[in-house]
């Protein structure tokens, strides 16, 4: 029996050595049960130890190993080689971000935006319950209202799928807005107005042209596109309330 093999074409960028990234092709054994990440690990372990990329949990929950596979953002631990075999797979770092090295992107912009949308529970003055009073009651229905948006693993696939972000990095972007919605819709939170400074700004929901691919590539079905459109509707309602009832309604 001849051993089956296939090829990965990986974008390499070694900042000390080269001006611009180039593709390198690696031949790897094909195994039915391997995910793409397994193949990349095989390359690092056996062919070229200098290949750099991020990974950890290999079960689709830590969000480290997002890459472009044949031009589509995917978690490399969640896609099997068999889905491509015998064709070549082109592996690139996530689109829309600067490349630090090989498959490693610079995430600073996202981390900054994450903090900007205030992703924590904000309560009105005097509404904080003490620990002795126990938990805040929240019905399963109230939980269901935001649960979907709390599933984001910050894998950045949605940013990589978003042409708006690629064209204009000032866009707050899908994951951050969905996370803001996650807190806005939480029955225990009162911070929506504070978050609107960012979410309803020009760089917030209004930048979105609703390509919708963010939701298509999301490995956790968070539906950031939906979160953003809902943000547009509520932002519009706020605006007209403000205009029609400037005294506050």
């Amino acid at each position: 029996m001849t051993r089956k093999t296939m090829e990965l074409e990986i974008l390499r960028y070694r900042p000390e050595k080269e001006e611009r990234p180039t593709f390198e092709t690696y031949e790897i054994p094909f195994k039915e049960e391997w995910v793409v990440l397994d193949a990349i690990n095989y390359i690092k372990d056996n062919i070229d130890g200098s290949l750099s990329y991020r990974w950890s949990c290999r079960m689709g929950v830590c969000g480290s190993c997002g890459m472009m596979l044949n031009g589509i953002p995917k978690l490399s631990c969640a896609v099997f080689l068999r889905d491509y075999y015998p064709d070549k797979v082109r592996v690139e770092p996530l689109t829309g971000f600067p490349i630090q090295r090989d498959l490693v992107i610079v995430m600073d912009d996202f981390i900054h935006k994450l903090k900007e949308i205030k992703p924590w529970i904000i309560r009105d003055e005097g509404q904080e319950q003490s620990l002795e009073e126990g938990e805040y009651l929240q019905s399963p229905a109230e939980l269901a209202a935001f649960k979907q948006y709390s599933m984001c693993i910050n894998c950045m696939l949605c940013y990589a799928a978003c042409p708006v972000y690629a064209i204009d990095n000032s866009f707050v972007g899908p994951a951050a807005i969905a996370l803001a919605q996650r807190y806005n819709l939480d029955s225990r939170d009162h911070g929506r107005e504070l978050r609107q400074d960012v979410i309803a700004s020009n760089e917030g929901v209004w930048e979105c042209t609703f390509v919708g691919e963010c939701s298509e590539v999301c490995p956790k079905d968070v539906d950031p596109a939906g979160a953003i459109q809902r943000g547009k509707v509520s932002g519009t309602i706020d605006y007209f309330k403000d205009v029609l009832m400037p005294w506050g309604g």
Partner: peptide
């Protein structure tokens, strides 16, 4: 070392079917 910033081609919408349909 300076990170490499890729150019995003103006023809991005031709690169994939969903983008084209958009």
């Amino acid at each position: 070392m300076k990170p490499y910033v890729r150019e995003y081609p103006n023809t991005w919408w031709l690169s994939r079917r969903p983008y084209f349909l958009f």
